[in-house]
């Protein structure tokens, strides 16, 4: 899932200071699962903003709504009426959701409430970790199912580097993923594979090549 984290309240409050009626829009997908932009978080942010603004001379009215997902037009269509009536929309979705909202409602000012962090998962309650670097060409079959692109601080493809000690990366609080890859490959009897030099990666398939697209002719609607 996409892992996102709420921006500091102060920043959000600053972004909405000139607005009197805002729609706080949650998303029921990834950000609900990572507890940053679901229905509950919408409620907390809305209440926080009201509490904050009530202390000044400019109270704020909040409208709360949470969509099935913000990254699909049909769900955004549902809130057309709600949107008409507000000064701005605070999207509590990932960056994708925020942009879909902005594109769907070009006349409205849209504010992101979250910082989108990574593609990852919850390794335990309340702890999410990055797992995928979205490089556009998966190499997990070469590294025992452990991704060095996302999880090595230097995204080294022939690791570990000299900074690895006791399973730890030279970068603070990071596990050396190549330590794990090595141990896993050993355990699986695939050391010979790890001895092969992994050549330069084709970064044109990653973000470096420019914004990416994917299309599937057979699911397109039309003639």
């Amino acid at each position: 899932m996409i892992v996102a984290e709420q921006k500091p309240f102060e920043e959000i409050a600053k972004m909405v200071e000139i607005f009197d009626k805002v729609l706080i829009l949650g998303c029921n997908e990834c950000v609900t699962v990572c507890l940053s932009g679901g229905e509950k978080e919408v409620g907390v942010l809305a209440t926080s903003l009201r509490l904050y603004r009530k202390q000044g001379d400019r109270p704020i009215t909040t409208v709360e709504e949470t969509l099935v997902r913000q990254c699909e037009w049909e769900y955004l269509d549902e809130i057309e009426k709600l949107v008409e009536d507000v000064d701005c929309i605070i999207s509590m979705a990932c960056g994708v959701g925020v942009q879909f909202v902005a594109e769907r409602f070009p006349d409205k000012w849209v504010i992101p409430a979250l910082d989108t962090k990574c593609a990852g998962g919850a390794v335990e309650h309340g702890l999410w970790e990055e797992r995928c670097g979205m490089c556009g060409e998966c190499i997990l079959h070469k590294t025992g199912g452990v991704c060095p692109v996302a999880r090595c601080s230097k995204r080294i493809l022939n690791g570990p580097c000299g900074g690895s000690q006791n399973g730890k990366c030279e970068v603070k609080d990071v596990d050396c993923i190549w330590d794990q890859i090595y141990k896993r490959m050993m355990a699986l009897g695939r050391m010979d594979q790890l001895m092969e030099i992994e050549l330069e990666k084709d970064w044109s398939k990653a973000r470096d090549g420019g914004p990416r697209k994917m299309s599937r002719e057979e699911v397109m609607i039309g003639e």
Partner: peptide, 8 residues
């Protein structure tokens, strides 16, 4: 933390 943030 939130109450600190919002000034309560």
């Amino acid at each position: 933390k939130i109450l600190d943030d919002v000034g309560i």
